[in-house]
Design a binder for these strands. Structure first.
Lengths: 152, 152
DNA sequence: CTCCGTGCAAAAGGTTTGCACTGGT
DNA sequence: ACCAGTGCAAACCTTTTGCACGGAG
């Protein structure tokens, strides 16, 4: 994300904290900044690595707790991901994902067509729809060129 | 899944094993059966609980290893899921998911419209598309009626 | 008979929790 | 000054690995 938008997001986050009476700590701001700066859907550990240089003495525990807070504020999303550890994304606008079956890399996919799908009515499940995204599964360029992921 | 289709799937699995020269063990058959019998996208542990009564002395390790084998055979899929543990699905035909933001329940969603989306070309990423599915996020009937998951 | 698959136990992540202290309001 | 947030260490839970045994081909 470009620096101007990052500052804008941080600003909105600060307002949100004041609104809710949440203490605005260095950790919260810098961990959010670390997620905003990455567009590769980092794990908690990746976020920790990015943020620890800017926050002396930062603890992994805090990263987990702050990410949880950011998710419940709706500032960050927890991704649906096949790998063993949680992944996060600060892009909360509707978008879609290319997921590599081999290396588990997640690439953002922008498409107006996919953003405006007509979803079937699912009211009979009692399910209240809030959003959706399309997960496209396949093999990324890098894995493909290594000859990985050839089926059967 | 209804019993007739389960038997059909197990039969196809047996042929597949013979074809590949994979030993056909009780564990493999019964663990696959356990996944086929569930439509709630079980975790490895749930599969273990279902299968252990039918396989005396079954070990969790075996469940993990067999699930891995079934995934690589393409008989079972590993789901993209926000929760902390891996989830599996024996329905390998294209279908979609309603995911409850509160309880993480996954409900299958069938829709011919969604099955036939025209995906944007992503050849410029070098990404080879193999399949896709739509993840619809919201609040399920049960959580909604408990008043959970009200935003803000 | 030969391997591969299995079970057990231990290790290896990733994530959460209890507690004392620090820092924001 | 108060209370929530943080850091540390330990606990927890899921998943993986090493090794010896047993069953399938």
């Amino acid at each position: 994300m470009d620096p101007a938008r990052i500052d804008e997001c941080l600003g909105r986050f600060e307002s949100l904290c004041r609104e809710r009476g949440l203490p605005l700590t260095v950790q919260r701001r810098e961990i959010l900044r670390a997620v905003l700066e990455r567009d590769d859907h980092p794990t908690a550990d990746t976020v920790y690595e990015s943020a620890k240089d800017r926050i002396p003495g930062l603890s992994r525990t805090t990263v987990y707790r702050v990410l949880e807070t950011l998710v419940s504020l709706g500032v960050v999303r927890r991704l649906h991901h096949p790998g063993p550890n949680a992944r996060f994304d600060a892009k909360t606008s509707r978008h879609h994902h290319l997921v590599c079956r081999v290396c588990h890399r997640v690439i953002d996919l922008e498409s107006e067509d996919l953003d405006n799908l007509k979803l079937p009515s699912v009211s009979h499940h009692g399910f209240r729809i809030e959003d959706y995204s399309v997960h496209v599964v396949g093999v990324c360029g890098e894995c493909g060129s290594k000859g990985l992921g050839i089926r059967d």
